[in-house]
Simulated assay, not measured.
Amino acid sequence: MGKSDATLNFPNPSRTYDMSRHCVCFWGYDNSREITFLVDDTMLAKLNSDLDSSEPALLAAFDRNRDRILGLARELYKGGAQNRYMIS
Protein backbone atom coordinates (compact mmCIF):
# COMPACT_ATOMS: atom_id res chain seq x y z
CA MET A 1 0.00 0.00 0.00
CA GLY A 2 1.34 3.48 -0.94
CA LYS A 3 1.55 6.42 1.36
CA SER A 4 -1.65 8.31 2.07
CA ASP A 5 -1.85 11.91 1.00
CA ALA A 6 -2.78 12.64 4.62
CA THR A 7 0.94 12.39 5.47
CA LEU A 8 1.68 15.47 3.35
CA ASN A 9 1.48 18.73 5.29
CA PHE A 10 2.17 22.36 4.43
CA PRO A 11 3.10 24.05 7.72
CA ASN A 12 5.40 26.56 6.02
CA PRO A 13 3.48 29.24 4.05
CA SER A 14 6.67 30.39 2.27
CA ARG A 15 6.76 30.46 -1.51
CA THR A 16 9.22 31.96 -3.92
CA TYR A 17 9.34 32.74 -7.61
CA ASP A 18 12.05 30.98 -9.64
CA MET A 19 12.61 33.15 -12.71
CA SER A 20 14.89 30.61 -14.43
CA ARG A 21 12.21 27.89 -14.24
CA HIS A 22 9.21 30.22 -14.65
CA CYS A 23 7.45 28.82 -11.61
CA VAL A 24 6.46 29.42 -8.02
CA CYS A 25 8.15 27.02 -5.58
CA PHE A 26 6.69 25.89 -2.28
CA TRP A 27 7.36 23.07 0.15
CA GLY A 28 5.42 20.30 1.79
CA TYR A 29 6.51 17.83 4.41
CA ASP A 30 5.98 14.10 4.74
CA ASN A 31 7.10 13.56 8.32
CA SER A 32 10.63 15.00 8.26
CA ARG A 33 11.09 14.80 4.45
CA GLU A 34 10.86 18.09 2.58
CA ILE A 35 9.07 17.83 -0.76
CA THR A 36 9.47 20.62 -3.32
CA PHE A 37 6.52 21.60 -5.50
CA LEU A 38 6.77 23.86 -8.55
CA VAL A 39 3.74 25.56 -10.10
CA ASP A 40 4.53 26.80 -13.59
CA ASP A 41 3.40 30.13 -15.01
CA THR A 42 1.02 28.38 -17.40
CA MET A 43 -0.90 26.75 -14.55
CA LEU A 44 -1.10 30.05 -12.68
CA ALA A 45 -2.45 31.68 -15.84
CA LYS A 46 -5.11 28.94 -16.10
CA LEU A 47 -6.20 29.76 -12.55
CA ASN A 48 -6.14 33.54 -13.19
CA SER A 49 -7.22 34.62 -16.64
CA ASP A 50 -6.17 38.26 -16.12
CA LEU A 51 -2.66 37.42 -14.92
CA ASP A 52 0.33 39.48 -15.96
CA SER A 53 3.77 37.90 -15.96
CA SER A 54 5.46 39.98 -13.27
CA GLU A 55 6.85 38.24 -10.20
CA PRO A 56 4.50 40.08 -7.78
CA ALA A 57 1.48 39.15 -9.92
CA LEU A 58 2.50 35.49 -10.10
CA LEU A 59 3.06 35.28 -6.34
CA ALA A 60 -0.30 37.01 -5.71
CA ALA A 61 -1.98 34.52 -8.08
CA PHE A 62 -0.44 31.67 -6.10
CA ASP A 63 -1.67 33.19 -2.84
CA ARG A 64 -5.22 33.65 -4.16
CA ASN A 65 -5.30 30.00 -5.25
CA ARG A 66 -3.24 28.47 -2.43
CA ASP A 67 -5.94 26.05 -1.22
CA ARG A 68 -6.60 24.76 -4.72
CA ILE A 69 -2.88 24.42 -5.47
CA LEU A 70 -2.25 22.56 -2.20
CA GLY A 71 -5.09 20.21 -3.16
CA LEU A 72 -3.42 19.57 -6.53
CA ALA A 73 -0.11 18.93 -4.75
CA ARG A 74 -1.76 16.38 -2.45
CA GLU A 75 -3.28 14.60 -5.47
CA LEU A 76 0.07 14.57 -7.29
CA TYR A 77 2.16 13.39 -4.34
CA LYS A 78 2.75 9.64 -4.26
CA GLY A 79 5.36 9.28 -1.53
CA GLY A 80 8.51 7.31 -2.15
CA ALA A 81 11.90 8.61 -3.20
CA GLN A 82 10.73 11.44 -5.47
CA ASN A 83 11.13 14.80 -3.74
CA ARG A 84 10.16 17.28 -6.49
CA TYR A 85 6.86 17.63 -8.31
CA MET A 86 5.78 19.99 -11.09
CA ILE A 87 2.19 21.22 -11.16
CA SER A 88 1.41 22.27 -14.71
Score class of each variant (00 low, 15 high):
residue 60 A to I: 03
residue 39 V to S: 02
residue 2 G to V: 12
residue 76 L to P: 02
residue 43 M to L: 07
residue 52 D to S: 04
residue 61 A to G: 06
residue 12 N to K: 10
residue 49 S to C: 03
residue 33 R to F: 10
residue 76 L to D: 06
residue 62 F to G: 02
residue 29 Y to A: 14
residue 82 Q to M: 09
residue 59 L to Y: 03
residue 51 L to M: 04
residue 52 D to A: 03
residue 75 E to L: 15
residue 84 R to F: 08
residue 10 F to H: 07
residue 12 N to M: 11
residue 50 D to R: 06
residue 33 R to W: 05
residue 55 E to C: 00
residue 45 A to P: 04
residue 27 W to S: 14
residue 85 Y to W: 07
residue 77 Y to C: 12
residue 9 N to S: 14
residue 85 Y to K: 05
residue 7 T to Y: 10
residue 61 A to Y: 02
residue 30 D to Q: 10
residue 37 F to Y: 07
residue 28 G to C: 13
residue 87 I to T: 05
residue 3 K to T: 15
residue 24 V to T: 02
residue 73 A to L: 11
residue 30 D to R: 11
residue 34 E to G: 13
residue 12 N to Y: 07
residue 80 G to W: 08
residue 11 P to D: 11
residue 40 D to V: 01
residue 17 Y to A: 08
residue 41 D to R: 03
residue 23 C to H: 03
residue 9 N to W: 05
residue 9 N to K: 14
residue 2 G to C: 06
residue 12 N to C: 12
residue 86 M to P: 00
residue 36 T to C: 14
residue 37 F to I: 10
residue 55 E to Q: 04
residue 54 S to D: 03
residue 69 I to G: 00
residue 56 P to Q: 07
residue 49 S to V: 07
residue 34 E to L: 13
residue 41 D to K: 00
residue 61 A to W: 02
residue 30 D to Y: 04
residue 78 K to T: 14
residue 7 T to M: 15
residue 84 R to N: 12
residue 14 S to W: 06
residue 35 I to A: 12
residue 36 T to S: 10
residue 9 N to D: 13
residue 67 D to G: 08
residue 79 G to C: 13
residue 72 L to P: 01
residue 44 L to R: 01
residue 18 D to Q: 05
residue 33 R to G: 10
residue 52 D to F: 01
residue 42 T to I: 09
residue 80 G to F: 09
residue 44 L to A: 08
residue 72 L to A: 12
residue 1 M to D: 14
residue 19 M to T: 09
residue 68 R to E: 10
residue 21 R to M: 14
residue 46 K to S: 11
residue 77 Y to N: 08
residue 14 S to A: 15
residue 32 S to R: 11
residue 36 T to L: 15
residue 7 T to D: 14
residue 64 R to D: 11
residue 5 D to E: 12
residue 51 L to I: 00
residue 76 L to V: 13
residue 6 A to N: 10
residue 29 Y to M: 15
residue 87 I to F: 08
residue 26 F to E: 05
residue 69 I to R: 01
residue 24 V to M: 03
residue 65 N to R: 07
residue 8 L to Y: 05
residue 22 H to R: 10
residue 63 D to I: 09
residue 47 L to K: 04
residue 23 C to E: 02
residue 32 S to L: 14
residue 6 A to C: 09
residue 80 G to A: 11
residue 59 L to Q: 07
residue 56 P to K: 03
residue 52 D to H: 00
residue 66 R to M: 14
residue 18 D to R: 06
residue 59 L to K: 08
residue 20 S to A: 12
residue 43 M to A: 03
residue 79 G to A: 12
residue 56 P to E: 06
residue 77 Y to T: 08
residue 78 K to D: 12
residue 50 D to G: 09
residue 17 Y to D: 01
residue 73 A to W: 06
residue 37 F to K: 07
residue 34 E to I: 13
residue 15 R to M: 14
residue 26 F to Y: 06
residue 13 P to N: 11
residue 1 M to F: 11
residue 49 S to P: 03
residue 52 D to I: 00
residue 25 C to T: 07
residue 15 R to S: 15
residue 64 R to H: 09
residue 11 P to Q: 09
residue 82 Q to F: 08
residue 48 N to F: 01
residue 47 L to H: 02
